[in-house]
């Protein structure tokens, strides 16, 4: 063997040794020298990505051993690609945390065959806030109340990003339960495109998260918020009626109230892959809650218009399980409404 070849073999052996040495699971109390990766199930630069990067900047100092925290985007199929990978490939070693959008939850709820995971098996860490769905109309449309919407001479055009999106689900529920009809135009790429279409008059209104509405229309006088989801009034929206309060039968009340509330909570959540140890999970849950309380985080979140009403993993899990355990007739009803 020539000296050169020997040297090459040595370099090669060193490479392999270095590569294998870096992949060892963590103990719950020691993240020293490790890198915690937050996998975001949507693309860089979007709302979820922005929120995860904000958390990533502050999370490290609340975890024992102060690991480096990085954000990694695995976009596609409404978060399903990330969730499938998470459930089947990602090692439960405490080094990969996922941040998932609503599509991951609704795909399982609505029985999408491509959802090859069980959300209830994910080790829930928490949700930064439960967003509220509201329906808004630009002031120029003159639609100021739910009643005006219902009695509009032509069906109002509401924008949506996809069929699993709350932008489609919520107005479809309003139509199916309260008979408030609209023409749902599905297929916009994002909420910014919907906002643009509202500005040009292409669309009449949209139902979306209150956080996004606040960021998109800093001047509240330019839009009318006519209805909100959930079971109680959002503290910033005391005058906006709750959709469930108009329901006349228990099924409609359940679909408009508890179901939309659980969907709002499941619209953004952090979780570890199935099988992660309980001690790692509780360490990270505490670190997550401490981050949410961190004045630095709170200040930046407020500046960026991101709500800060965290929900810890256990409550999150209970609400999601309740949603997925919806009685079969209700789920069937929900699917029928969405199929229209």
């Amino acid at each position: 063997m020539t000296p050169g070849r020997l040297r090459f073999l040595r370099v090669f052996a060193l490479q392999i040794a270095v590569i294998t040495a870096v992949a060892a699971p963590v103990r719950a109390d020691d993240y020293r020298g490790k890198t915690l990766r937050i996998v975001v199930g949507s693309s860089a630069g979007g709302g979820y990505d922005r929120e995860a990067r904000l958390v990533a900047r502050h999370l490290s100092r609340h975890i024992p051993g102060s690991p480096r925290v990085v954000v990694d985007n695995v976009p596609g199929a409404g978060g399903l690609i990330a969730a499938n990978t998470f459930a089947r490939v990602t090692a439960p070693d405490g080094l990969t945390l996922g941040y998932f959008p609503l599509g991951v939850l609704s795909a399982q709820l609505l029985g999408n065959p491509a959802a090859q995971y069980d959300v209830t098996k994910f080790e829930m860490i928490g949700s930064p806030y439960a967003d509220r769905t509201v329906c808004v109309f630009p002031a120029s449309t003159g639609i100021t109340t739910l009643e005006r919407w219902r009695t509009s001479p032509r069906p109002l055009k509401l924008g949506s990003t996809g069929r699993d999106s709350i932008m489609h689900v919520f107005p479809a529920l309003l139509a199916g339960t309260l008979g408030i009809r609209s023409q749902i135009i599905t297929g916009y790429k994002g909420t910014t495109e919907v906002r643009l279409a509202l500005a040009s008059g292409e669309l009449d209104g949209a139902c979306q998260g209150w956080g996004g509405v606040k960021a998109g229309w800093p001047d509240r006088r330019t839009i009318n918020v006519v209805v909100q989801s959930g079971t109680d009034h959002h503290q910033e929206l005391p005058d906006v009626p709750i959709a469930a309060s108009f329901a006349t039968d228990p099924d409609a009340s359940a679909l408009l109230g508890t179901t939309t509330a659980a969907m709002s909570l499941g619209a953004r959540f952090y979780a570890f892959p199935p099988g992660t140890s309980a001690s790692v999970r509780s360490t990270l849950t505490e670190a997550f809650l401490a981050t949410m309380r961190d004045p630095g985080y709170a200040e930046e979140a407020a500046a960026a218009g991101i709500s800060n009403e965290p929900v810890a993993g256990d409550e999150l899990r209970a609400r999601i399980e309740a949603l997925l355990a919806l009685p079969q007739p209700l789920i069937t009803k929900l699917r029928q409404m969405l199929a229209r």
């Binding site: 860089a44 630069g45 922005r50 906002r195 998109g216 500046a303 960026a304």
Partner: peptide
């Protein structure tokens, strides 16, 4: 003007603007 980035790098610039409270739009 619309918060719709024209390129990949302007996606990152957009998030920086939002952090600084510069909301795209007529304002």
């Amino acid at each position: 003007i619309f918060g719709i980035p024209g390129s990949v790098t302007s996606v990152v610039l957009l998030s920086a603007m939002l952090m600084k409270g510069i909301i795209p739009g007529a304002s």
